[in-house]
Every structure is written in C-alpha cells, then in structure tokens.
C-alpha cells in the first residue's frame, strides 16, 4: 500500500463579499478577475477554520484522530505569533497529547509545504498524519493588496491506505525576493512594494519544468493543474507560458478570493472532488521560490468526497454581506486601547 491522501476536508466561511462592493466603495478594484471573496466572521480565524476543515477530513478518514502521529499546520495569519496555534487545533481534534505538532508559515507556500511534510512524516514512520492549511491573510482595507484577500481552510489525512492519492514527484525552488508580499514582525497588515518583478511566474515555471523533466511527465499526461492564484488571473498566464490548456486549471480564487496558504491546497481539493482515479494532478505553490508536485488520483479520494458536504455545496452556501458588514466583521472597526 502506498502512502498518500486518504481523506480531505474543506472549510470556507459563510460570509461573502461581492468585489463589486469594493469597487463601489473605493472607486476601483485591483483584482477584477475575482468575483466574490469569503471572509471570516467575528468569531472565526485560521484556528477555527482549520479545526472545522480537520473535522471534516477526520469524519471521512479511515484513521481516527487518536491514530494521528502528527499535525502539520500552515497559516500566515494565525492569532498568535508565538504560542503554537496548531496546539489549539490538536486539542480540538483529538484527546490524545501524544502527537507531534508543527506549524509552518512565512508565505502562501506554507500550505503545500505542510502537505509535503505530512506525507514525508507518514512515509518515514508509517503513521498517519494530518496537514491543515488555513488562512485569512490581511492587509489594510485602503490598500489595493487587500481587495482580493479571502479566507478558507483545507485539511488532508495522509497515511498508508488502499487507493490513496499518491505523491509522484516533487521539485523545489528557492529564490531571494525583495519587496514582494511581506509582513514585518509585529505588523498586522501585508505589504507589497509592487515592483512588478514577477518572481512568481519565473519560479513556478522553473519548478514545473524541473518536475516534468525529472519525472518524465508531459503536459498531455496532466489532467488538472493547480497553480498559485493571488488575483484570479495568474494561473491562466502561467498556463499560456507552459502551453497548457486553460480548461485544466483549478482555482477557487475567483469565487472566494486569495486564501493565502490555503489557496493551493483548496485547489487540490477541487481536483480531488472532480477527477477520476488514475488521473494526474500537478500542484504548484509559490512564496520566494516554488514547490511543484504531481499526484495520482486514487479511489480513496472518491470515497472521501462522497461523505458529507461536498466542496461545491460549501462554496454555494455563502451569505452575501455589505462592505460595511465586511469592515465590521473583519474587525477593522474595533479600536484598541
């Protein structure tokens, strides 16, 4: 039996803001390809969203919460900078304290990194592990960077299981970047100097080309393509450069916004909820470099997606809010001190 994804779960907050509201309020919109975004309510954050996604994955999993050997949690916007957010998640998911917990962050790339680490843990120690990516990146509402930022969470149970969705190959790139999507210690809001260097496209292309070459995969053998998507348009540009058909692209960004570290993992879930067994999924994330991975869809993911609410169902059950509600519920109007 191979090690791979045996169950998955997703969580998207119910609150939705049509980006037309942003355009009306600010007189412009930096991400016109995003139609709507999901945002956390006053009582949601990456921890609560991660717990809910994790619970859905566990409900669908052949392994119980007490069997997990590790939880790898990725976020760029956890409520604590120090004190592991993942410990809260672990306590909510399992009564067992004999578990390794690892928290990852630093860039939207953390989501796929958590999934890879969970796979590597599980393959090394023959124990099931969980990866959770949950994020609600935040920038100042007056900055154009903020327009497209959404929220969501994805969770995966990785283990040795019949029909698991297996990891085929990985290619990683690291580069130094300047002035691109960063947040200094103690700061609340993301910044971007908008130097338009497009490190993203370069790194992603390089990682994918390296992956395909190393694993001897051609584009025609790829059924679905999940790419970093901060604006609803980036994947199409990359696909064009790659020479891939845009029909193969899977991204939730146009519907729920840029969900940071959860974005690419949620795209992977979209693939797991759609493809037939045996199909190849190419998943690549970005953050000062890129990780490209290829996965082979397994029967276990088909079983998993048939239990409980589908991703599509979760996406459809949004509740439209006004921009005023958005500012309030997101906490922008709570004055400290």
């Amino acid at each position: 039996m191979a090690t791979g994804i045996v169950a998955h779960g997703a969580y998207v907050p119910k609150n939705r803001l049509p980006l037309e509201e942003v355009r009306r309020f600010w007189g412009g919109l930096s991400t016109p390809a995003i139609k709507e975004k999901a945002f956390p309510s006053y009582d949601e954050d990456p921890v609560t969203m991660g717990v809910e996604a994790g619970r859905q994955a566990l409900e669908r999993s052949p392994f119980g919460a007490e069997e997990l050997g590790a939880i790898f949690f990725a976020t760029t916007s956890g409520p604590y900078e120090e004190k592991p957010n993942v410990s809260t998640i672990a306590s909510a998911l399992t009564g067992s304290s004999r578990i390794r917990v690892v928290e990852m962050g630093g860039s939207p790339r953390a989501g796929l990194q958590a999934l890879l680490s969970a796979w590597e843990f599980s393959a090394s120690w023959s124990k099931p592990a969980m990866a959770i990516a949950s994020d609600a990146p935040i920038a100042h509402p007056a900055s154009s960077l903020e327009h497209g930022l959404g929220a969501g969470a994805a969770a995966f149970v990785i283990g040795e299981g019949e029909g698991a969705t297996t990891l085929e190959a990985v290619e990683s790139i690291s580069v130094e970047t300047f002035g691109e999507r960063f947040r200094r210690r103690g700061q609340s809001y993301l910044q971007d100097l908008e130097l338009r260097q497009d490190e993203l496209t370069g790194s992603v292309l390089k990682a994918i080309e390296g992956l395909m070459e190393g694993a001897r995969i051609s584009l025609s053998q790829v059924e679905a393509l999940v790419l970093p998507d901060p604006d609803g348009g980036t994947p199409a540009r990359i696909a064009k450069a790659l020479g891939a058909s845009p029909e193969k692209l899977l991204s939730l960004t146009p519907r729920i916004g840029d969900t940071g570290a959860a974005s690419v993992p949620l795209g992977l879930i979209a693939a797991l909820e759609k493809l037939e067994a045996g199909k190849r999924i190419l998943v690549c994330s970005y953050g000062a470099g890129a990780d490209a991975t290829s996965w082979i869809m397994g029967e276990a993911s088909i079983v998993s997606r048939q239990r409980g609410r589908s991703l599509e169902d979760i996406l459809e059950r949004g509740r439209i809010r006004s921009y005023g509600d958005y500012l309030k519920l997101r906490g922008f109007l709570v004055q400290k001190g």
Binding site: D43, T48, V51
Partner: peptide, 24 residues
Amino acid sequence: AVFRKLYDQEGVVRYGYKFVMDEE
C-alpha cells in the same frame, strides 16, 4: 456544534463550541 472564538481577554483567545443551523 461548531468550533469558534468565544472572546478575547488578557491577550488570550478563548475558544469553544457554538451552534449553527444544521442545514442538513
């Protein structure tokens, strides 16, 4: 039942259960 933030006091987020309408 769902897992949510209850309130934030002394710099500590207090989490716990709340309920949502069960659409199923």
